[in-house]
Amino acid sequence: MNEQFNISASPHIRAKDSTGNIMLWVVIALLPATLFGIWNFRDQNAWILVIVTVAAAVLTEFVYEKLMHKKVTIQDMSAAVTGLLLALNLPPSAPWWMGVLGAVFAILIVKQLFGGLGQNFMNPALAARCFLLISFTGRMTSFTYDGVAGATPLATMRADGSIANVDTMKMFIGQIPGTIGETSVIAIMIGAIILLLKGIIDLRIPGSYLVSFVVFITIFGGHGFDWSFITAHLCGGGIMLGAWFMATDYVTSPITKKGQIVYGILLGVLTGLFRLYGGSAEGVSYAIIIGNILVPLIEKVTLPKPFGKGGEK
């Protein structure tokens, strides 16, 4: 009986794509950033952290559902996507056990204890990253590139107040310190184009996110419309990975078209606030988490009015 009838909240949308197919395409779209990160940080064995984190996420979901006598859902690949996104948000120098701890937190605490896929109120991978940032700040903000420990380009800009010591072309290619999957804008955009062509995402959320962010830093960044300054901010940190792959998460983003634009603008403003006035040079993770929490309110005020009584005539 449980297999024949599913009781769930609206909206009820029929589509040819299954959750498994969508998640598979997300994994495929993340492969360019993943492979580049593994090659870019090959001296730090980034591949080990990626494999261990993904495996821990899948295993946690499998063990929990077995213990709770629930249907095993690892075949929908949502746990694998969570693990992969978390791994791409970790510095390559992070020990493997941090990836495991973050994966367990993401799947068990943020996803399964709230009811599983579709019930979590925030992005599990980003929630785990914020948990690790709070718990292990030093390790999560320590970066090494080509055997040399140093600050990320965003941190360098924040420290000296200029972009003179920042190479935006290297930032665009990805030859900079950072987390495993955030450094190469080229690799991220290849994946984003795949998702756009497959119709899995559209431009409303990432477009409004990036445009509002650019407007914010242009007005309040102290450099005016300085294209080098804007490019450095767009290519640095996790804003491109966040805008195309995490802000667009189906579960934790608005379903209304107007709501998606409002949500994107909110993320752009929050990211700008955190980057320009916050305690660290980054702010994407916290911006998206706060945006996730506000999604129910955004949807409430952006729902279209029904025709008929009390609606539009």
Score class of each variant (00 low, 15 high):
124 P>G: 07
194 I>F: 15
111 K>G: 07
66 K>S: 09
8 S>A: 15
10 S>Y: 12
249 D>E: 10
306 P>L: 04
117 L>Q: 08
184 S>F: 00
39 W>A: 06
125 A>E: 06
173 I>T: 15
285 S>M: 04
285 S>G: 10
277 Y>L: 14
145 Y>A: 04
312 E>A: 12
268 G>C: 07
257 K>R: 09
41 F>R: 06
264 G>P: 13
89 N>F: 02
51 I>Q: 02
59 L>D: 01
258 K>H: 06
305 K>N: 06
183 T>W: 03
288 I>Q: 05
32 P>C: 03
22 I>V: 15
230 I>Y: 00
296 P>G: 02
1 M>D: 03
21 N>S: 14
58 V>T: 03
44 Q>N: 01
12 H>W: 10
12 H>I: 15
263 Y>K: 11
245 F>T: 13
198 K>D: 12
268 G>Y: 08
157 M>K: 01
168 T>Y: 00
169 M>G: 12
176 I>A: 12
192 A>E: 07
34 T>Q: 05
147 G>W: 11
230 I>R: 00
31 L>P: 08
247 A>N: 09
170 K>I: 04
145 Y>G: 02
233 H>F: 04
266 L>D: 13
164 A>M: 08
222 G>Q: 04
160 D>M: 12
235 C>S: 04
14 R>T: 15
130 C>G: 13
294 L>D: 01
96 W>K: 03
180 I>W: 00
211 V>L: 13
182 E>S: 15
34 T>A: 14
140 M>L: 10
39 W>P: 03
115 G>E: 08
307 F>C: 09
219 I>K: 14
15 A>S: 15
165 N>C: 00
288 I>M: 13
149 A>Q: 10
265 I>M: 15
308 G>V: 01
295 V>S: 02
102 G>K: 10
292 N>T: 08
71 K>R: 15
235 C>T: 08
32 P>V: 06
81 V>Q: 08
287 A>F: 10
103 A>K: 01
252 T>R: 05
124 P>L: 10
270 L>M: 15
70 K>S: 14
227 W>T: 10
293 I>E: 04
155 A>N: 05
149 A>C: 01
283 G>H: 03
32 P>R: 00
213 F>W: 04
15 A>L: 14
141 T>P: 06
